[in-house]
Design a protein around this nucleic acid. Structure first.
Length: 922
RNA sequence: GCGGAUGUGGCGAAAUUGGUAGACGCAAUAGACUUAGGAUCUAUCGCCGCGAGGCAUGGGGGUUCGAGUCCCUCCAUCCGCACCA
């Protein structure tokens, strides 16, 4: 009987659906385990072989945990809102809902082909009104909340109202705001003031507190996409999607006050199991730094300049100040003779794009003509402006300490500003001394001190003088939360007299209306502004960004059809955190941070009982494409084989990997590929055309996309799954290389032959030999260990070794083969299920318990082994093969030969080197 | 520049805590069975050497009875951040 994977896979995939074997109860007496994949954006090009890598890993783990007796939640869905669908709609006139639906069905077919154990009854789509009703609902929770810094919690806005009415905001000043409130000069006000203000003013002030708020701010505006982008959607000054230029622009936008959560987002990282690289990336993005804010007065002026520094101890080395060119103080302090120069410089800075500024870091700047006063020495300090000081970070102004900061040093050298040495002999004059392992000189009351002590002392002094304080700063900005786009969640917000009011919960979902055109609305507004029914009701015309729906989706899977709540708390209490979250590193600072913040807010508001969504994160590597190259002799239609190309002047072109077998080009297929190649001529080597190769991103334009459907068609889903795992560690990036797949396929055929000889099923009920049981239990242990630590590639190897050994032993005993099928089933579910039933089982192999590992089977009768003392070979002793370390030690210690050589002293260490010898260290 | 990771045969890679380096697989070579191809099976397969043996985990140094693994240093590649004061 042949291993007919096509029939087997079709048969079991259908049986699994018919018997609903993957449906998971929302509550159970069993312990829970939640395995989640980052859900895909259903793009038009479907899956390539790189996408399922993480899905296979999580599927194996989910099945493994199920065998181990857990109630496993392993759902799948689609992140269906987003820009590409809308761009496609603009270009092809197909409504995003239609193209999304079509793409999803392609994805589903491709996923089903691979035999995943998803509970599809829990499928979600972020673009489904039944789903985004709750995205809108959660948005309203955030809108109706503020962040209380005193309790470090998200609280309902009602608690703030009570405070403002009772005591004003003395204890809860308006959060450092980038926005102007008319008529308000200070960040604090009294209860009387508050109670006198009209509704509109109060609402404007409340907006300054809301966790989801609307305001005018500098945003990343992408003209080509016609929308605003979040910081993490901008890469090197261009949009992540499409690579279009992005400029800074002031616009009315919705934001999430994620900065208030910065400390908790940082702290939470210590409680989760993410890779160091991932934690570093998030930590970096949050960018916490501790230092001080210091107020400098300006000579002959009433102006003051606040600076932020992490090194207040170096204040005696402050030789000049630098203010960001956009800083509002610049126009006020500028002196007559410097006006032209400064204005020219400001104009120059404005003319430079974000991108240019990033690419070429030129030293540039201008002197304002004004001087600040040193708070301790009274020394005048020249004030410069330069683009290396960013308006958006800290206070937008710095005290420059050239001897202690590299950029300040270069600036001082470039503009010939005298440098004060505050580090004595350690400072060479050549370059700045950034180290904190120094002693201060030339620094008045700080002389002879190390920076740590000096920092405390300076801050204390400044505080006494009322011109400074310790200050924590973050790089992270509040997250832009609105898009001037159509294909996203509408905001459940209605505008009245310039004030945003939330819709009533009963009006949710606020459904996305159908539109004919996706053109932007007037004045930078989205397409919704073109719909009269929408604007008549004064509904918000922006839509939410892609990350809205994905920020909480892991909760919806727990209770996907609930129409009364986003998730029944009985279920979220049971399932709790995602135990294993699998996905790529590209979401390090976007999705992961946002969803961590939403989780904290929902936790604070009492909707869920945990404040970190993902307990453990596994980042699968990317699979790259292995492109095939052909070489066309310049000016003709002749292609020369790779080995001979050096003799010709050639152009390098991509050939489709699907018409190359190994390295040999299928010439006929190539000729038919494109009309201009039809008459092509070929210069061959050894009668073959050999292609060149290059590793590139897998993508259409390189013609190196391999579709999993093709691989599954040819080798079967089980081979595909095992091969993807066999390729190497899941975390690692690697190229797709079809060469090795035959080996995995051969393994499955060998497995099949263990069960079926020429005459049919040959499995017997005979008792297994100790040798056979040893092979089995060795494998059980190895698979258990390797699967637990996500070492799936070595698991596959262990299965190969096992089958090879059982084949050599001609083992056809049920006692061995049946447990083998159970441990194999997470990796090769179809063939395991088929053989499981062939053995007469009637339930699914998924419900079998994972076989228990018995170490006793690994211990063999005693044999003689050579022994070495301190590396020198001495003699031989009897010892049990594969015994435990304790067993080995007991035997060795009892051995008279060993006692003689160690002169009765207990050895420091006894090492049993697998099956060959014993090493004793005295 | 800063941060993170990686470096082992012709190739993908193994080697829990320092303990037979190269498991497993691909490719290759020889052979068996086949009219042939495919499939399957057997053997060889890091480098040098006829051999005994010697040399090998990016380079150099160190700790140790023993180092791919630990420490120092240099080099290369990949990823992330990038004037963050």
């Amino acid at each position: 009987m042949e291993y007919n994977f096509r029939d087997i896979e079709k048969k079991w995939q259908q049986a699994w659906i018919d018997n609903k074997v993957y449906q998971v109860p929302s509550l159970s007496d069993k312990p829970k385990y939640y395995v989640l994949d980052m859900f895909p954006y259903p793009s038009g090009s479907g899956l390539h072989v790189g996408h399922p890598l993480g899905y296979i890993a999580s599927d194996i783990f989910a099945r493994y945990k199920r065998l181990k007796g857990f109630n496993v939640l392993h759902p799948m869905g689609y992140d269906a809102f987003g820009l590409p669908a809308e761009q496609y709609a603009i270009e092809h006139g197909v409504h995003p809902a239609v193209s999304t639906e079509k793409n999803i069905s392609t994805f589903r077919k491709q996923l089903d082909n691979i035999g995943f154990c998803y509970d599809w009854s829990r499928e979600i789509r972020t673009s489904d009104p039944k789903y985004y009703k709750w995205t809108q609902w959660i948005f309203l929770q955030l809108f109706n909340s503020w962040y209380n810094r005193k309790t470090a919690k998200t609280e309902p806005i009602a608690t703030l109202l009570a405070i403002l009415e009772g005591e004003g905001n003395q204890n809860h000043p308006i959060p450092d705001s980038q926005f102007q409130i008319e008529g308000l000069t200070s960040l604090t006000f009294t209860a009387e003031q508050w109670n006198k203000w009209d509704e509109q003013t109060r609402q404007i002030i409340l907006m300054e507190y809301r966790v989801a708020y609307c305001g005018y701010g500098e945003v990343n505006w992408c003209e080509a996409l016609g929308t605003v982008l979040a910081n993490d959607e901008v890469v090197n000054g261009v949009s992540e999607r499409g690579g279009y230029p992005v400029v800074k622009k002031k616009l009315r936008q919705w934001y999430l006050r994620i900065t208030e959560y910065a400390d908790r987002l940082l702290e939470g990282l210590q409680r989760v199991d993410f890779s160091d690289a991932m934690k570093d990336m998030q930590g970096n993005w949050i960018g916490k730094s501790t230092g001080a804010e210091i107020r400098f007065s300006v000579q002959n002026s009433s102006e003051v300049i606040d600076v932020y520094t992490t090194r207040p101890d170096t204040i005696f080395g402050a030789d000049f100040m630098v203010v960001a060119p956009e800083h509002e103080v610049v126009v006020k302090i500028i002196t007559g003779e410097q006006r032209t120069e400064v204005e020219e410089y400001v104009a120059y800075v404005k003319s430079r794009s974000e991108r240019e500024r990033m690419m070429e870091k030129k030293i540039s700047g201008a002197f304002t003509g004004a001087y600040a006063v040193h708070p301790f020495t009274g020394r005048p300090i020249p004030i410069w402006i330069s683009e290396y000081v960013l308006a958006g970070y800290g206070t937008g102004a710095i005290m420059a300490v050239p001897s202690g900061d590299e950029r300040d040093h270069k600036f001082a050298q470039y503009f010939n500003i005298p440098i004060t040495n505050i580090f004595g002999d350690l400072y060479t004059g050549e370059e700045a001394l950034m180290s904190k392992d120094v002693v201060l000189y030339n620094s008045d009351f700080l002389n002879g001190m190390h920076p740590e002590r000096a920092i405390n002392l300076v801050v204390d002094r400044l505080e006494q003088m009322g011109i400074g304080r310790a200050k924590v700063n973050f790089k992270m900005r509040d997250a832009a939360f609105s898009r001037q786009r159509y294909w996203g969640e509408p905001f459940p917000i209605m505008w009245k007299g310039g004030v945003a009011y939330p819709l009533d919960e009963k009006e949710l979902p606020l459904e996305l209306p159908f539109v004919e055109s996706y053109k932007p609305g007037p004045e930078g507004e989205g397409p919704l502004a073109n719909i009269p029914e929408w604007t008549e009701r004064q509904l918000e015309t922006n839509t939410m960004p892609g990350y809205a729906g994905s920020s909480w989706y892991f909760l919806r899977y727990m209770d996907p059809h609930n129409e009364e709540a986003f998730c029944d708390q009985r279920f979220s209490n049971y399932w709790g955190q995602v135990d294993l979250y699998v996905g790529g590193t590209e979401h390090a600072v976007g999705h992961l941070l946002y969803s961590r913040m939403w989780t904290k807010a929902l936790y604070d508001l009492g909707h869920i009982s945990f404040d970190e969504p993902y307990k453990r994160l596994l980042n699968q590597g990317k699979i790259g494409g292995d492109s095939r190259l052909v070489y066309r002799v310049k000016g003709g239609n002749t292609f020369v084989s790779a080995g001979l190309k050096d003799g010709y002047d050639t152009d390098e072109l991509h050939a489709d990997v699907n018409m190359v077998n190994g390295l040999e080009l299928d010439i006929e297929a190539f000729k038919q590929w494109r009309p201009d190649y039809a008459g092509a001529e070929f210069i061959l080597e050894d009668g073959k055309y050999i292609c060149g190769t290059r590793l590139e991103k897998m993508g259409k334009r390189y013609f190196n996309v391999v579709n999993p459907d093709d691989v599954v068609e040819r080798y079967g889903a089980d081979t595909f799954r095992m091969y993807e795992m066999f390729l190497g560690p899941v975390e690692q990036d690697k190229p797709w290389d079809t060469k090795g797949i035959e080996g995995v396929h051969r393994f499955l055929k060998k497995l099949w032959r263990l069960f079926f000889g020429d005459a049919g099923l040959q499995v017997t009920g005979e008792k297994a030999t100790p040798e056979e049981l040893k092979v089995l239990h060795k494998t059980i242990r190895k698979i258990e260990e390797d699967t637990e630590r996500f070492s799936f590639n070595t698991s596959v190897s262990a299965f190969m070794v096992c089958v090879n050994e059982l084949t050599d032993l001609k083992c056809t005993k049920r006692e061995v083969l049946e447990p083998l099928l159970i441990i194999l089933s997470p990796y090769a579910p179809h063939v395991s299920e088929e053989l499981w039933h062939q053995l007469g089982n009637t339930t699914t192999v998924l419900d079998a318990p994972f076989p228990k590992f018995e170490p006793a089977y690994l211990v063999e009768s005693s044999k003689e082994y050579p022994i070495s003392i301190n590396g020198k070979m001495r003699t031989q002793i009897d010892i049990a093969l594969d015994a435990t370390q304790q067993q080995v030690e007991a035997i060795v210690l009892a051995n008279p030969v060993v006692q003689r050589w160690t002169e009765g002293k207990p050895p420091k260490k006894i090492i049993f080197v697998k099956g060959k010898m014993v090493n004793v260290v005295v």
